[in-house]
C-alpha cells in the first residue's frame, strides 16, 4: 500500500497484459501465416514431384554443399579469431567486433557487388587464379561473407564462458598453448561453436542477394525459386520453395535440439 510502484511491477494492470498479448499475437501470426500458407497451399504430390525434379535436386545439393564448404572454411579460420577476441585485450578490439558484424548490416546485393571486386574477373585474385564468377566456389564465397558473423559471434561467446584458470591449470600440468586450446578450450566451448556452425550453414543456405550477383548459374535453390517465379509464376516456384523450406526447418530443429541439450547440461 505504501509503495504502489512495487505492486505495479509485480502484477501488471490487466489492460497492459491484454494489449501486450494482442500485439505479440499479431507479430507471431505475421511469422507463422506465410509459412503455414505456403505449406498448406502445396499438395504432397507437388512437393514430391518437386523433390524428384532433377533441376531442384541438383540446386538443393549445390546449395547445401556450398554452404557447408563455406562453414568449414570459416570454422578453420574463424575459430582462432573468436578465441583471440575472447582471451586477449588489445587496441582496436571493439572495432574488430564492429567489422565482424558488418556483413549483417550491408545489403546483400551490395555485398555481392563488393565481392566481385575481390574475386571477379578484373580483380587481382581473378586475374591470378581465375575468376570465381559463375562457379560453386564463388557461391560459397558469397554465402561465407554474409553468414560468417554468426559463427564468430557464437564461438566467441562460447570461449568467453570457459574459465581462464582451467587453461592456466592445464598449462602448469605441462600442456602447450596449442594442446590446451584443443583439449580444454574447444571441448568446453564446443556446444556454442556447433550452434554457430549450424547457424552459419543455415544462413548460407538461405542466401540469395549476394549469391545471385556472383553466380546466377550454377543455380542454388533460392535462385531457382526466383527464376521459376519470374518465368512460370507462383505455382511453379512454390513447390521448389517448399522443398527448401522443409530442409531449413529440419536444420533449425537440429539447432534447437543442440541448444536445449546444452542448457540442460549446464
Amino acid at each position: 500500500m505504501s509503495n504502489p510502484r512495487s505492486t505495479e511491477v509485480g502484477r501488471p494492470i490487466p489492460w497492459t497484459g491484454l494489449v501486450f498479448t494482442l500485439l505479440g499475437s499479431l507479430v507471431l501470426l505475421f511469422i507463422i501465416a506465410p509459412l503455414a500458407g505456403i505449406l498448406l497451399s502445396s499438395s504432397l504430390g507437388e512437393i514430391t514431384e518437386a523433390a524428384a525434379d532433377e533441376e531442384v535436386r541438383s540446386s538443393v545439393s549445390l546449395t547445401l554443399s556450398a554452404a557447408l564448404m563455406a562453414t568449414i572454411a570459416c570454422t578453420v579460420t574463424g575459430i582462432p579469431l573468436a578465441y583471440l577476441l575472447a582471451r586477449k585485450r588489445f587496441f582496436g578490439r571493439t572495432t574488430l567486433f564492429a567489422i565482424i558484424d558488418l556483413p549483417i548490416i550491408v545489403p546483400h546485393t551490395t555485398a555481392g557487388i563488393a565481392l566481385l571486386t575481390v574475386v571477379g574477373r578484373d580483380s587481382l585474385f581473378g586475374s591470378t587464379f581465375g575468376s570465381l564468377v559463375g562457379t560453386a566456389p564463388g557461391i560459397a564465397v558469397a554465402m561465407a561473407f554474409v553468414s560468417v558473423p554468426f559463427l564468430i559471434n557464437a564461438a566467441h561467446n562460447g570461449f568467453a564462458k570457459v574459465p581462464v584458470h582451467l587453461e592456466s591449470a592445464a598449462r602448469t600440468l605441462g600442456a602447450s598453448p596449442c594442446r590446451t586450446f584443443f583439449t580444454i578450450s574447444v571441448p568446453l566451448a564446443w556446444r556454442d561453436i556447433l550452434t554457430g556452425m549450424i547457424m552459419m550453414w543455415a544462413r548460407g543456405i538461405s542466401e540469395f542477394g549476394a549469391v545471385v550477383i556472383i553466380a546466377y548459374h550454377p543455380m542454388t535453390t533460392p535462385t531457382l525459386v526466383f527464376e521459376r517465379f519470374n518465368d512460370y509464376g507462383l505455382a511453379h516456384a512454390r513447390s521448389a520453395a517448399v522443398v527448401l523450406l522443409i530442409i531449413c526447418v529440419l536444420i533449425f530443429a537440429a539447432l534447437r535440439f543442440v541448444a536445449r541439450r546444452r542448457s540442460r547440461e549446464e
Binding site: P163, H165, S168, T172, G174
Partner: peptide
C-alpha cells in the same frame, strides 16, 4: 613458459 617449468598449480577452487 609454464608448461616447461614443471611447477604444478592447484587452484583454490581446484579448476
Amino acid at each position: 613458459p609454464p608448461e616447461r617449468r614443471g611447477f604444478a598449480l592447484v587452484y583454490q577452487d581446484y579448476a
